[in-house]
Nucleic acid binder design. Structure first.
Lengths: 153, 153
DNA sequence: CCTATTTTGGATAAAAGAGTCTCAATAACT
DNA sequence: AGTTATTGAGACTCTTTTATCCAAAATAGG
């Protein structure tokens, strides 16, 4: 798997937040219901994003979480790095420690190229971009929930 | 992680075999020593590759394993599919089941592109290609073992 | 001040991946 | 035939990831 499950959940939740970004705090319970993710598990993941400064939270009634920046200012890579770390973008395809231009494995060059493609994709894609696309074409954010049904209430 | 540890070990072992491909059977113990991989664990992995027809094995003294085809005829993708399956090349980046052209997630298009790049890299790279490169430049197949020191005995 | 709502943080449990161990089966050599 | 070298197969353990649960802290509203 490219991204851990935690990371995927973090991305989906971030897209959710970006999609209804009115500066309001959204309860995690609402998100976990809508996105069909275990509440407790999602809570843990969002705590990481909060710790990394991607989200901010507010306790108590009317509390919840929200993005600290505009969705246009948040790239997928920010969330991936916050949850999965930089392994994916630095690791050797053959698992050799310290593989790099200086002391490469035979696959290094080819893998570095591919890895850069992944990096670039994650770095150039913003939450807002995906939200706009998702809303325009009513794409899915859950097994059977399109953007339209996720935010009505 | 892109590839599982099993898969990485399988790739390293396959490269080892391709590098000394004289049609001889190589004992797994030799490979596990040279490649610094747990013997029992490597055994399991190579059993998978044998079951998938990528290797053939021979029991008893002078036994071991060898590639069933020439290294020029074995692509990295063959080994990845045999060990990790096709998940990497089919799965949705947001983990949604059945994500595809028909019922996509907002990230589908971009991810499909990147995924194809990975696929292509794995599909176009043969064992022999990497072995030649590895031998020519004495690259690493283990933490500190170059191609030159791995095959002398 | 009290209660309800919500995040925080830690403990625990279940599932998957990684790694180890043992014994059986096969084959070569003496 | 017996001994040794090797793969095959299954059980088992350890670690990491995924998931669940519970009590504590914060906050709004009555």
């Amino acid at each position: 798997m490219l991204l851990s499950k935690s990371c995927v959940y973090g991305l989906r939740a971030s897209l959710y937040l970006a999609a209804r970004n009115q500066g309001e705090f959204i309860p995690i319970r609402t998100m976990s219901d809508k996105l069909e993710i275990s509440f407790h598990f999602l809570t843990k993941i969002l705590q990481q994003l909060t710790a990394e400064g991607i989200l901010e939270s507010f306790k108590g009634p009317n509390g919840g979480v929200r993005l600290t920046r505009e969705g246009t200012e948040i790239q997928l890579i920010d969330i991936v790095l916050a949850i999965d770390g930089s392994q994916l973008l630095t690791e050797c395809a053959l698992g050799l420690p310290g593989c790099g231009v200086k002391n490469p494995c035979p696959l290094h060059d080819k893998w570095a190229e591919t890895r850069d493609a992944i990096h670039e994709m994650l770095e150039k894609t913003t939450l807002t971009e995906l939200v706009q696309k998702g809303k325009a074409e009513n794409l899915r954010l859950t097994t059977d929930g399109g953007f339209d049904i996720l935010f009505d209430n």
